[in-house]
Design a protein around this nucleic acid. Structure first.
Lengths: 225, 225
DNA sequence: ACCATGTATCCTGTATACAGTATTAAGCAG
DNA sequence: CTGCTTAATACTGTATACAGGATACATGGT
């Protein structure tokens, strides 16, 4: 009669995880700051156990790191690691583009197109929205490649870089031809060779890296808004 | 005078993690079997806490899954997921090949060559050794691409498939031209275009998938040794 | 003022205790 | 014997308690 409850009963640890992650995204926890299990637990009035679980998970995902017995801190990411993250994105997203340009399913292409169109319908300047939409375009492409493992990697990569991507977006004062870029990418997916599609994606990501490093350098000595 | 202790004080949870993982690899825990925190804890005479930590980590890595309140079990992997895993390998390792064939550092190529040579010096038939050597060849290639994030993904993928790869190797009664295959791959890394190197890697992995599925089908109704 | 040594505290890792729900087993009606 | 209702058990998730080692602070000697 009624479907049986789809399990997934609420897990306190999951809440903590979300809260912490979004705190990192919003910059409420700047890098270097110490995260103490007891204090976090006290702040949200729960025990240390679920807090600990969330912290460990974030550590394993590369967002936090543990420094001896001084607690967890946000990993401050070196330039080398930034490059590595972008490189990994090239691998994952480039391959996804390759696969899509090989299969060419109508449904898949339509779904991607929709994500791309959303970007063009955004006129106001809202950094966070831009970020979300951009991320969604890339994620949709990976998703539509039909490989769930790849999608998991994508999510892992992006959550690992949360503080980074947003930072980059924030600083990127003018994004002139961005919609065009994604349209071009879509075009390659639709009618280019798989190799072309992959290359287009890789180049696009590499541009992002350049812009990222550029912004970082510019604002390096002027970290406040 | 004395070197300072390299921190990393022993973590009980890490032990449990290793034990469980290798138990999966050795097939001591076949898929479907239930893993109960209390029982495991009792068996190695520790409390549930570190056991739980290890289990959660293995779950996040995709080795285990949680089924309601009936404990953890080894994920039985569907054919679709096998394909997804191999696809992800194509993305990661193919990209690594591309990068290496672009940079062409002497040191890197030499390191890879060494790994390949190790395979040709193995004459006896030792399934586990073959597996280790093969894995090492692929891992070295990713490692030498110089991208630590990519390497992390590689490790994650392979540990996720541990039970699979070994299964496949076990069943693969004759591996005739395998050394040749890797030599050819090395050749492309040394002197092919990046695209060629990538393609060679992808084809190689795809062959592995075909073989895997073939073996699986053959032995499907005869699961015991 | 500076360095060394001892002491207090902080913080984690592990163990144990408690609460609650899914799953299984038991009992009973048809 | 089959199907339903109710009780028992089996697990997990969360909370609390304990132990030990690192870090930070204070005290005293030079």
């Amino acid at each position: 009669m009624f479907k049986k409850a789809p399990q997934a009963r609420p897990r306190l640890a999951a809440d903590v995880y979300d809260q912490l992650l979004s705190a990192v995204v919003n910059g409420q926890i700047k890098p270097g700051e110490r995260l103490i299990q007891e204090k976090i637990a006290a702040q949200i009035n729960i025990s240390r156990t679920p807090v600990r679980e969330a912290l460990l998970r974030l550590e394993q995902e590369g967002v936090l790191e543990q420094t001896g017995r001084r607690g967890f801190t946000i990993r401050d990411i070196t330039d080398q690691e930034i490059r590595a993250l972008y490189g990994a994105r090239e691998a994952v997203e480039g391959y996804a583009a390759y696969v899509i340009a090989t299969d060419r399913g109508d449904q898949q292409l339509a779904t991607i197109e929709q994500a791309v169109l959303a970007e063009q319908q955004l006129f106001e300047r809202d950094v966070e929205k831009e970020f979300t939409i951009n991320r969604n375009i890339h994620r949709t492409i990976v998703e539509q490649s039909g490989n769930s493992v790849l999608l998991g990697m994508f999510d892992s990569l992006w959550s690992r870089g949360v503080s980074l991507w947003l930072f980059s977006a924030t600083r990127n004062d003018q994004t002139p031809s961005k919609p065009d870029v994604h349209s071009k990418l879509l075009q390659k997916l639709k009618s280019g060779t798989p190799e072309e599609a992959q290359k287009e994606m890789i180049d696009h990501i590499r541009d992002g890296l350049d812009m990222h490093l550029e912004n970082k350098k510019t604002h390096a000595s002027n970290p406040d808004s």
